[in-house]
């Protein structure tokens, strides 16, 4: 399992691995928002938390079809299915690798981008906290979507449509944490809900992903 994780990270870092894709998209969104809504910093600081969460979510969505599609195309997925790894473990590792290469860089970059959107200073810690708790759910749900659509040529659109509704609860509670934090309100309730969603998806979805993947490689 460790070998698979190391290989996935290595593939992401090498040329064409798409490591910077999500990060670049996140940067583009946050840089362009002040241009499109105007340089009114009061308005920007009101919407900053929501924009940052939306940007992170869409950046995540962008790289989902890479999770399994490449391994499907070159036959690696068939060979992994014969390997002494449980399919549940394989999809969990895939989700973890996706989070490490997409979610984690977004979290690390978020404070910098928050500055561009003049997020109130009280909002930084809740923003980081909510992204830290919320983005793993995005990767795990995304891996489930990728497993559902693997083998479909140009399945990216279908994948986005399938995954988007599943992302909504994470987005609602995640941005609620960040927004309440920025307004100086208590944010423990949505934070607990967010943690619940993430832990629930991590516990349950790998089994669903493995099951649909087994059906799809037939």
């Amino acid at each position: 399992m460790k070998a698979l994780l190391i290989r996935d990270l290595r593939l992401a870092m090498r040329a064409g691995g798409g490591f910077g894709l999500g990060l670049a998209f996140f940067l583009i969104v946050t840089v362009l928002v002040p241009f499109s809504v105007g340089p009114d910093s009061a308005l920007l600081s009101t919407i900053a938390a929501g924009i940052l969460w939306l940007g992170a979510l869409l950046a995540c969505l962008l790289s989902l079809d890479r999770i399994l599609a490449l391994d499907w195309e070159d036959g690696t997925l068939d060979l992994l299915a014969c390997a002494p790894l449980p399919m549940e473990g394989t999809v969990s590792i895939k989700a973890l690798a996706h989070w490490l290469t997409t979610g984690l860089p977004l979290i690390l970059a978020a404070p910098l981008f928050a500055l561009l959107l003049s997020l109130p200073s009280a909002g930084y810690i809740p923003l980081i906290l909510s992204l830290l708790l919320g983005t793993p759910a995005l990767s795990v749900i995304g891996t489930f979507g990728a497993a559902l659509t693997v083998g479909i040529k140009r399945g990216g659109l279908l994948l986005s449509l399938l995954v988007l509704p599943l992302y909504v609860p994470t987005l609602i509670f995640g941005s609620e944490v960040a927004r309440r934090g920025a307004d100086g309100l208590s944010y423990s309730t949505p934070l607990i809900m967010l943690a619940g969603i993430t832990l629930g998806t991590i516990a349950l979805l790998p089994f669903a992903s493995a099951a649909v993947l087994r059906v799809n490689i037939r």
Binding site: R10, D74, L80
Partner: peptide, 9 residues
């Protein structure tokens, strides 16, 4: 038929 080879490795 396909060898499961990663081209960048």
């Amino acid at each position: 038929h396909s060898d499961g080879i990663k081209h960048v490795l």
